[in-house]
Amino acid sequence: MKIKVITVGKLKEKYLKDGIAEYSKRLSRFCKLELLECPDERTPDRASPAENQQILIKEGQRILSKIDDRDFVIALAIEGKQFPSEAFSQLIDDKTSQGFSTITFVIGGSLGLAPDVKTRANLLMSFGQLTLPHQLMKLVLIEQIYRAFMIQQGSPYHK
């Protein structure tokens, strides 16, 4: 199985890179993890709604170019469905059993995700109403994917 994580923007903070590297290493025994970064568009201060829409469209095109037709796509969006960790683990297991060889997660940039990306997604998922930096969300997501596999294994990691 392959897990693909597509994000907007380049990760710069060392502590986040270190955390992601640690969970990526742990995940290597369960799946092939592919981390893809799309360049983000510079957002001017006090950008108009039309400018923000154009930025979303450009970032969305970059994201969609990295998604294969057969991927099961889960886009992270505040309006998405929330899952307890056990249900998230079951979701990953179910999609694998249904024959999806690649589950692709998408994290948008500071403006969120383009409507086209949300439309392409098979599922919109939310980690809650809190606003988190998208770079931190990448680490949180990868830890939750690792936790999902540990739950499937019956590991005490998930207490």
Rank of each mutant, 00 (worst) to 15 (best):
S89G: 14
L33V: 02
I92G: 07
T96H: 09
K81G: 12
C31M: 08
I57N: 03
K95G: 06
A21Y: 00
E41I: 07
S65W: 08
I92F: 13
I67L: 14
K12V: 00
G19W: 00
D71G: 15
K66D: 06
K17N: 04
P49H: 04
L56H: 05
K12Y: 01
D93L: 12
F72V: 09
K81V: 15
R70H: 09
K81S: 10
Q53I: 12
E79A: 14
A47D: 07
Y23F: 15
I63M: 08
E59K: 01
P84M: 08
Q53P: 00
A77F: 08
L56F: 01
F83N: 10
K14E: 06
R26I: 08
T102A: 14
F30E: 13
A50W: 09
Q61M: 04
S101V: 00
Q90G: 02
N52D: 07
Y23C: 08
R70Q: 11
R62M: 07
A87M: 03
V73S: 07
L16Q: 03
I20C: 04
E34Q: 14
L91A: 01
E13D: 07
E51Y: 09
A77D: 15
L33P: 02
D40L: 00
I92N: 05
F30P: 11
K17M: 04
P49I: 04
E51I: 11
R26F: 00
D18S: 04
Q82N: 14
I63Q: 14
E86H: 09
G19L: 12
E59R: 06
E34C: 03
Q54I: 14
D45G: 04
D69M: 02
Q98H: 10
A50Y: 03
S24N: 03
P44S: 10
G60D: 07
P39Y: 07
G60C: 05
G19I: 00
S28E: 15
E37S: 02
D68Q: 15
K66N: 15
Q98W: 01
R42E: 08
A75N: 14
E22T: 06
R26C: 04
I78Y: 03
E13Q: 10
R70F: 01
R42S: 15
D71V: 13
Q82F: 03
D71A: 10
D68K: 14
D18I: 00
K95P: 05
S48T: 15
G60N: 11
D69T: 13
K14W: 00
